[in-house]
Design a protein around this nucleic acid. Structure first.
Length: 897
DNA sequence: CACTCCCGCCAATTA
DNA sequence: TAATTGGCGGGAGTG
């Protein structure tokens, strides 16, 4: 029974069993069709689920050993299973599985279903891409293995690769600590640097493979030991104990993985063929590349490639050469790592690459010495920001105080910074300015070069280390702002997952229109109580923005400084109150909203360059001193908004984001943290795009985000603080949910049109993407439309009602769309699917309301990186490539139900 | 048949 | 010494 149950719960289990049986059968009994597993089912055994059982029996009869094994397994599993069942995760997991699994069900698990890539996706789905720094997620190998229904050996394969990229670290026997992708870009950066040293030249000239190979091999050898980087790269640090280390660790999957990644990073084409990689990796004995050795290497590379593919870092391609078509992999991850804080920011003194390196070393566990890594240190750092922690440790020089602050503070600061980054990203300006666009685009690209290759990747803008990452949309072009959402994790410890991944695809698909993106900004709030506002920014300087963003991410302070003074001050609650801006249409609505929220918002005001006189001026004046910058912004926005709105339908894009941390964190933090970036459109001042309201008690933990982009004036903060924003999206994870990553893309449409309905108008439906696999699905919501005032009111209301949060959300079309001109601006509808949310509420979100016409694409996800999340769902790697967007849509469509 | 890559034996490492 | 890790390669599944 256990098995049976298990199978249900975890699809894999059954699968696993079966396969095993099969193999055994083969060995033992030739039996009938050796070939297709499916057949087995068909064959003799009528029993639906029994087929396997029968087989087992046969097998066991045949071989005692097998039997024993099976017994062991069974004994083992049940226990685990029971445990799992208890845990919430298991539930989630199950659910997810069901959806996916049902299809195949027990049919014999085809080989693909058992693939390492798929397994890895499932594995990744269990953890948030950007876990909060506060929460540490520990991974128990046994547990995971049982949950996923695979032998531990397989888990090692995955973990080893993940460890090579610092996504996880070994804490103790059987225990790994999940870090998520916070440091991924840093790690990649390090690898890139190291790779350049080691094989840089070679790669450049990729032509002769062999030669290259050759060289690689040699260089590697030499360089490796020598280069200091090496340690970084390799965790193992063979250097220290070179001798001993060599033995096993050198060959380790971890090192191979790092080297493999390095090859991609160094390669200008970003494409590496397996055989070349294998040759290079064979290193030492390059001379005698025994065939067998080569084969073995290739096998390993496939293992690694599968994991990397699941991470969304590479994808399989075929390179046709004279000889023929050769399997190869293309790097689709971030190419540059500017995004990371350092680069973009120009990196503060504190964070330097160097440190990074050191960090790497440190991170690396002192393996050599002790043998196994110990992560005591790691333990010390938050999972979220391992890097920084490390750095600090490592370098005598502590990072700037700010950073520390962030770190210590928890996430909030970081988050803020991240938010900022996001904002920056978002800034992408408006399409109108073509020029600007271009600029923006470039910048963006810089961050993520990949775009060309595949999708737009979203780079992770992760500002740094922090939890959040925003992914910039690839389509910078769009005027609209985009925000990524970082995953947000609840305190509960659950992790949100990265939502990014999914997004990107969409954007790509829709390349045609950039517009899509613009609309969707995403915001993530790490802390439950964040308040975010986003206003449309002016487009003017995307480029500027970006940089700023970078700054923000890394250090808020600097960022602020850098930015125009206006920007940042944030205060918390006051601002909110201060903000009163009548927004376009209905301030009232906003008000309500605000009320709910409370506002402690910190505003983020974009700093605009003064470019748009209006905006600024307006803002400045408008705001009046009461509020800080943020406030100003709002004010500005509001006053200006109307006008601007009219004119510029679209501009709205920019966002302001603010974060607030409610009480949760220190009050202190918020201020610094918040930064925001805003951009301004030429004309308009900002419009706040999002409002994040903290849930009141009643809400039960839901957080809402409202996007206020639409109308310029959309949001006004009245004394009441009710913004009349249109609320595009709201997402909230319930505590129970744990953390969901939320993403909202507000697209706005232009001006707000009041909607009679009161419902939100969402031009576009919101989408949710969830990874099937992932326990916690990230939610995405994008709203396009503007909300009518009424609506807003409604929205506001919603929050209050915990039970049906979603209800209000139902997207309403907004006329705004029309108003807005830009493609993007307007409508975006994404269907939203809520997973796990409390059921009902989510329903409203469904995309139905959405109109195809508008749909923008949805989000681009930032995820270009890897958003495994998106994919997790299904199928395999291959599918991913397909348009992720489509998939999403599909998913969303389905999910809604 | 070639490409993938699952599976799990069994040795190296750890605890 | 037992348990954990993980290298390795046979050989199965897929196309």
């Amino acid at each position: 029974e256990n098995i049976f149950d298990r199978s249900r719960m975890a699809p894999k289990t059954p699968i696993k069993n079966e396969p095993i049986d099969l193999s055994k059968q083969k060995g033992c009994t030739p039996e009938r069709n050796p070939i297709t597993p499916v057949k087995i089912i068909d064959r003799p055994q009528p029993d639906p689920w029994t087929p396997t059982a029968n087989l087992k029996i046969l097998v066991s009869a045949a071989s005692p050993d097998m039997r024993d094994r099976e017994k062991k397994k069974e004994l083992f599993r049940p226990i685990e299973n029971s445990e799992q069942s208890d845990t919430p995760e298991s539930l989630q997991y199950d659910i997810v599985d069901d959806s996916t699994v049902d299809e195949f069900e027990k049919q014999r698990p085809s080989r693909k279903q058992k693939s390492l890539g798929l397994l890895c996706q499932k594995f990744l789905a269990r953890y948030p891409n950007y876990p909060l720094s506060t929460e540490k997620t520990t991974i128990s190998l046994d547990e995971v293995a049982s949950i996923l229904g695979v032998e531990r050996r397989r888990i090692y394969d995955i973990v080893n690769v993940l460890e090579s990229l610092h996504l996880v670290s070994r804490v103790a026997k059987n225990q790994y600590c999940w870090h998520g992708r916070h440091n991924l870009s840093q790690t990649l950066k390090m690898l890139q640097e190291a790779g350049e040293l080691q094989y840089g030249e070679l790669m450049t000239s990729q032509h002769k493979e062999q030669d290259l190979e050759y060289k690689f091999g040699e260089q590697k050898k030499e360089t490796i030991p020598d280069s200091q980087e090496r340690p970084l790269l390799d965790f193992s640090e063979p250097d220290c104990s070179s001798a001993s280390a060599n033995s096993r660790k050198d060959k380790s999957l971890r090192i191979m993985s790092q080297k493999f990644v390095m090859l991609f990073l160094v390669s200008k084409t970003k494409i590496v063929t397996l055989d070349i990689a294998a040759k290079i990796l064979i290193e030492e004995t390059q001379d005698t590349v025994d065939h067998s050795k080569f084969k073995t290497k290739v096998r390993r590379l496939y293992d690694i490639a599968n994991v990397l593919t699941s991470l969304g870092l590479i994808k399989k391609v075929h390179v046709t050469e004279e000889r023929g078509r050769k399997p190869a992999f293309k790097w689709i991850g971030p190419v540059e790592f500017p995004e990371k804080t350092d680069e973009l920011r120009g990196h503060s003194p504190t964070s330097d690459p160097l440190p990074g390196a050191q960090r790497g070393a440190s991170v690396r566990y002192q393996t050599s010495a002790t043998g196994k890594q110990r992560f005591t240190r790691h333990a010390s750092f938050n999972s979220a920001q391992p890097c920084e922690a490390t750095r600090r440790k490592v370098s005598s020089e502590p990072n700037s105080p700010r950073q520390e602050k962030q770190g210590s503070i928890v996430n909030s600061d970081e988050n803020c910074s991240k938010m900022i980054n996001l904002a920056a990203v978002c800034r992408q300006k408006i399409e109108e300015d073509t020029g600007n666009k271009a600029c923006d685009t470039e910048t963006i690209l810089n961050s993520a070069k990949n775009s060309n290759a595949t999708l737009p990747l979203s780079l992770l803008p992760a500002p740094g280390d922090s939890d959040f990452c925003v992914n910039p949309l690839p389509q910078a072009v769009l005027p609209v702002v985009q925000a990524d959402v970082p995953s947000f994790s609840l305190p509960t410890g659950i992790c949100s997952q990265a939502s990014h991944p999914s997004m990107p695809a969409a954007s790509k698909t829709e390349n045609g229109k950039p517009t899509l993106f613009p609309n969707q900004p995403f915001l993530c709030f790490p802390s439950s109580s964040l308040f975010m506002l986003c206003g449309g920014l002016q487009e003017n300087n995307l480029s500027e923005l970006l940089p700023t963003a970078g700054h923000l991410g890394s250090r808020s302070a600097e960022a602020q400084a850098a930015v125009p003074p206006t920007v940042c001050q944030k205060r918390s609650s006051h601002k909110c109150s201060s903000l009163s801006a009548p927004v376009d249409e209905e301030p009232a609505a906003k008000k309500q909203v605000l009320e709910h929220s409370f506002l402690p918002l910190s505003l983020v005001v974009p700093k605009n360059p003064s470019e748009s006189p209006k905006a600024e001026s307006s803002s400045g004046s408008g705001c009046s001193a009461t509020v800080h910058l943020e406030t100003h912004r709002f004010d500005l926005a509001s006053p200006a908004a109307p006008e601007a709105a009219n004119k510029e339908s679209v501009k709205p894009l920019d966002c302001h984001e603010q974060e607030k941390q409610p009480q949760n964190k220190d009050p202190d933090e918020p201020p610094p943290g918040n930064e925001h970036i805003s951009k301004e459109n030429a004309n308009q001042p900002f419009q706040p795009q999002y409002l994040y309201v903290q849930p009141t008690a009643g809400l039960s933990g839901f957080n809402f985000l409202f996007s206020a982009n639409q109308a310029p004036g959309a949001i006004s903060l009245a004394a009441n603080q009710m913004p009349s924003l249109s609320v595009p999206c709201v997402m909230v994870p319930s505590a129970a949910l744990a953390s969901f990553p939320l993403v909202c893309s507000p697209s706005f449409t232009g001006p707000l049109s009041p909607a009679p309905d009161g419902s939100f108008s969402a031009a576009a439906p919101t989408n949710f993407n969830m990874s099937s696999l992932a326990p916690t699905p990230p939610v995405f919501i994008s709203t396009t439309a503007v909300v009518t005032p009424k609506v807003s009111a409604a929205a506001s209301v919603d929050p209050q009602q915990p039970p049906h949060p979603a209800l209000h959300l139902s997207p309403v079309l907004t006329r705004s769309c029309s108003a807005v001109k830009l493609d993007s601006p307007v409508c975006v509808g994404h269907p939203v699917t809520l997973l796990k949310l409390q059921q009902p509420s989510s329903a409203p979100l469904t995309p139905k309301s959405i109109r195809p016409a508008h749909h923008e694409a949805f989000f681009k996800t930032p995820g270009s990186l890897g958003d495994p999340v998106a994919w997790r769902k299904n199928e395999g790697n291959q599918t991913r490539n397909g348009s992720s967007v489509q998939r999403r849509l599909e998913i969303s469509s389905t999910s809604p139900d």
